[in-house]
Design a protein around this nucleic acid. Sequence first.
DNA 1: AAGATTTTTGACCAGTTGGAAAAATGTTAG
DNA 2: CTAACATTTTTCCAACTGGTCAAAAATCTT
Lengths: 239, 239
Amino acid sequence: MAPKKLKTVEAAQAPAKRQHKADAKVATAPAKPRPLTRIQREKQDIILEAALEVFSVHGFRGATIDQIAEVAGMSKPNLLYYFPKKEEIHRRLMSELLVTWLAPLEEMRADGDPFVEIRSYIRRKLEMARDFPRQSRLFANEMLRGAPHIIDMLEVDLKALVDEKAQVLMTWMDQGKISRTDPYHLIFSIWATTQHYADFDVQVRAILGKGRGGEGRFEDAARYLEQLFLHGLTPRPKA
Amino acid sequence: MAPKKLKTVEAAQAPAKRQHKADAKVATAPAKPRPLTRIQREKQDIILEAALEVFSVHGFRGATIDQIAEVAGMSKPNLLYYFPKKEEIHRRLMSELLVTWLAPLEEMRADGDPFVEIRSYIRRKLEMARDFPRQSRLFANEMLRGAPHIIDMLEVDLKALVDEKAQVLMTWMDQGKISRTDPYHLIFSIWATTQHYADFDVQVRAILGKGRGGEGRFEDAARYLEQLFLHGLTPRPKA
DNA sequence: AAGATTTTTGACCAGTTGGAAAAATGTTAG
DNA sequence: CTAACATTTTTCCAACTGGTCAAAAATCTT
């Protein structure tokens, strides 16, 4: 089975207020979507950026349109001109998220060296936690709520992708290249350990303190995780 | 340093509406707190239980008093009689949470066998994820928001506890009993991997599917994590 | 520059929110 | 039983919520 891209949920990216009636002229034409203008694209991006900021902290219900509008630097009605519903903004965010969020796993190649592939995957996930913490938190917020908006995609697309990669892992196990263990829980543990640095960032920093809580913590984490997944905690004689 | 219990934030557990003025009799007495009646304790428990249900899913801002009251089976004003402020409920929940949530780590004894101690700790945390998923999600929700209500405790009490246990781990490393690695990130990885099964439960179940998504998933997780922390993924010759 | 279109704004609305006040109802110690 | 207290319900409110709408302002097209 090919890597298979997630289907995108879009479908709701109409320019704005649908059909400014102006196309009464064309009458029966099958609703040509009309390409987005520059301004529309720019404003939508600004809004999505602001929405990410707010949703990722307060969750869907806890976030307010006013707040998003304020962060986006525009009035509420103006924002609603581009996204007529609060849900619409969230939906867009979620579908964009799922695509980019799973890309790292798709990149794990069956024909590479197992340890190199797994290590690279962990690195990539850790980099995402470092560079896109808000996306990680947005995702986490959705999970905590029971993923009402994306449960279907989880059960279909995500499951398919993970099934595929679990097969790859099992092949490696069959070949004796990595230890035989549960490939699904292996993937879970990579997700958990890497995303932890985005989602629980406050806690991580509170504990590491000023001294070690700087940007270096991601390098430390990478080094630690590398060892964990390679050898666990069993002491080995020095090389 | 002794295990040191977390200080409880309480301080706001007054019976209800403060000083039903009734104590004008006692006049200048130093405000005797007056012990909680049976009903007060029961009702407060019911409310806290309902609040846990709601807060853990929607976060602080996303949760409404009406909703909590409904789950608790009482009217909103009645609920407000016991907890005059929404924040009050949340505060109580959080302080109770921190105490029970960290108990497992406190139990990790320096004088035990390292692998036994670590494995037991992982087990306990996993059991908590299984038996108290809502508490786990409540905690996660607070973290995602930047832990505004408990940041102090994280920086003081939690840090102290983790520092202490990190010392224990380092001692074990010095003795060559476990592999030398970063003890803080080791603890983080245990938290992350175990809490994942509560916080991301939907995802875990969506991926494992009906077949393996049953209660058995916790046993599978325990087995997998045991191996991960013991040996990582490096294949070993069969015993 | 005029006309057509798109974007922005201000006023507004109905429903919900956290919470206050007070009246009504229980409960219990003397 | 009854007074003192505890609990519950009813009513109310001001602020906030997601969202509408018409008109004004800005932009684009010709």
